[in-house]
Lab assay of single mutants.
Amino acid sequence: DKPVLAIQVLGTVKWFNVRNGYGFINRNDTKEDVFVHQTAIKRNNPRKFLRSVGDGETVEFDVVEGEKGAEATNVTGPGGVPVKGSRYAPNR
């Protein structure tokens, strides 16, 4: 398990590439950019086929120490709701 650095952090999605399945979230508290992989998205938009977060979307997440620095995990919308997802992700 990766060491946990912070829990229930709010941030804004800087960018997310649906095809490659990753992007970055900017933390509201430290203004640090945190890597996010599609496997870290815990509550996906049920209408979306692929797990994703949308550019500019506000999300809540935990921060863990990854191999290359801070990574987001347990990604949801604020308060644990499903994320909205990327407009580029296909609908079901």
Results as ranks from 00 to 15, higher is better:
Asp1Gly: 13
Val4Asp: 07
Ile7Phe: 15
Val9Phe: 07
Gly11Ala: 06
Val13Ala: 11
Val13Phe: 04
Trp15Leu: 06
Gly23Cys: 08
Asn26Thr: 10
Asn26Asp: 07
Asp29Val: 08
Asp29Gly: 07
Thr30Pro: 02
Lys31Trp: 06
Val34Ala: 15
Val36Ala: 13
Val36Phe: 09
His37Tyr: 14
His37Pro: 07
Ile41Thr: 12
Ile41Asn: 06
Asn44Leu: 06
Asn44Met: 10
Asn45Glu: 04
Asn45Ala: 08
Asn45Ile: 00
Pro46Thr: 07
Arg47Val: 10
Lys48Asp: 05
Lys48Glu: 08
Lys48Gly: 06
Lys48Arg: 07
Phe49Ser: 14
Phe49Trp: 14
Phe49His: 13
Phe49Ile: 14
Leu50Ala: 10
Ser52Ala: 05
Ser52Thr: 09
Val53Gln: 01
Val53Ala: 05
Val53Ile: 14
Asp55Glu: 15
Asp55Lys: 15
Asp55Cys: 14
Gly56Ser: 06
Gly56Asn: 09
Glu57Pro: 00
Glu57Asp: 03
Thr58Ile: 15
Thr58Gln: 14
Thr58Phe: 08
Thr58Trp: 05
Val59Met: 01
Val59Trp: 00
Glu60Gly: 04
Phe61Trp: 03
Asp62Leu: 01
Val63Ser: 02
Val63Ile: 14
Val63Pro: 01
Val63Asp: 03
Val64His: 04
Glu65Lys: 15
Glu65Gly: 11
Glu65Asn: 12
Glu65Thr: 11
Glu65Cys: 13
Gly66Asp: 05
Gly66Ala: 09
Gly66Tyr: 01
Gly66Pro: 01
Glu67Ile: 14
Glu67Pro: 15
Glu67Asp: 13
Glu67Met: 13
Glu67Phe: 13
Lys68Trp: 07
Gly69Asp: 03
Gly69Ser: 04
Ala70Phe: 13
Ala70Thr: 14
Glu71Ser: 08
Glu71Leu: 11
Glu71Ala: 09
Glu71Met: 15
Glu71Cys: 12
Ala72Asp: 00
Ala72Cys: 08
Thr73Val: 15
Thr73Arg: 15
Thr73Met: 15
Thr73Leu: 14
Asn74Arg: 08
Asn74Ser: 06
Val75Tyr: 01
Val75Asn: 02
Val75Arg: 00
Thr76Glu: 04
Thr76Phe: 00
Gly77Lys: 05
Gly77Ser: 04
Gly77Phe: 09
Gly77Met: 04
Gly77Leu: 06
Pro78His: 04
Pro78Asp: 00
Gly79Arg: 12
Gly79Asp: 11
Gly80Tyr: 02
Gly80Trp: 00
Val81Phe: 09
Val81Trp: 09
Pro82Glu: 08
Val83Tyr: 02
Lys84Gly: 08
Gly85Gln: 04
Ser86Met: 03
Ser86Tyr: 01
Arg87Lys: 14
Tyr88Lys: 09
Tyr88Ala: 06
Tyr88Trp: 13
Ala89Gln: 07
Ala89Pro: 05
Ala89Glu: 07
Ala89Thr: 07
Pro90Val: 09
Pro90His: 11
Pro90Cys: 09
Pro90Ser: 11
Asn91Gly: 11
Asn91Arg: 12
Asn91Cys: 13
Arg92Thr: 13
